[in-house]
Computed example of a mutant assay.
Amino acid sequence: MEFQTELDARGLKCPLPILRCKKALAEVDAGNVLKVVTTDPGSVKDFQAFCKQTGHEILDMAENADAPQKEFIFHIRKRTA
């Protein structure tokens, strides 16, 4: 999937992946896509709730089980309004 910015949140535990995502989204233009990679299993529910509350859109969620520690990959489009 195409994205403009990538955030590596591997090794961080809640709430740090969400806080870093929020900061990264503040720095990208509306409509752009942020790729976030995290290893925190709780981030799946956290990012769903975060996007529902803020109006950003999760375009894709995937798991990379082949990594040394399971990774969760999100593509989030910044809200336009």
Rank of each mutant, 00 (worst) to 15 (best):
A26S: 15
I58F: 00
Q69A: 10
F74Y: 12
T39C: 06
A65R: 14
L25V: 10
E6G: 01
K23A: 13
T54S: 15
D40S: 02
F72H: 15
K23P: 01
L59I: 09
F50H: 04
V28W: 00
A49L: 12
V28E: 06
I76K: 06
A62D: 13
T5D: 06
I76T: 01
N32L: 09
Q48N: 11
V33I: 15
L25Y: 00
R79N: 14
D60N: 15
A26W: 07
K35C: 10
F3T: 07
T5I: 10
T54N: 11
Q4I: 04
Q4P: 02
V28S: 03
S43R: 07
C14R: 11
V33N: 06
G55V: 08
K45W: 09
K45E: 08
V36N: 02
G55R: 03
I18L: 15
G42M: 05
K52S: 10
N64T: 05
A65N: 13
E2D: 15
A62H: 00
I58G: 03
K23T: 11
Q53E: 14
K13S: 08
K45V: 11
D60A: 13
C14M: 11
C14H: 15
T39V: 03
D46K: 06
R79H: 12
I73D: 01
K78Q: 10
M61V: 06
K22E: 14
A65G: 07
F72A: 05
T38Y: 06
A81E: 14
C21L: 07
K45D: 05
L12F: 11
I76E: 02
C51Y: 01
R77P: 05
V44L: 10
L7N: 01
I73C: 00
Q69V: 15
K23Q: 13
M1Q: 10
F50Q: 01
K22R: 15
E2Y: 08
A24G: 04
I73W: 00
K35G: 07
V37E: 10
G11V: 02
R77V: 05
T80C: 08
K13V: 09
K52R: 13
Q53L: 12
A67E: 14
K22W: 05
N64L: 01
V44Q: 04
Q4D: 12
A26Q: 15
A24I: 02
Q4A: 12
D8Q: 04
A30Y: 06
V37A: 02
K78C: 02
E71R: 13
K23H: 09
G42I: 01
A65S: 14
A24W: 04
K78P: 11
D66V: 03
D60G: 04
A49H: 12
H56V: 04
A81D: 15
A65I: 12
D40V: 00
C14D: 10
A49Y: 07
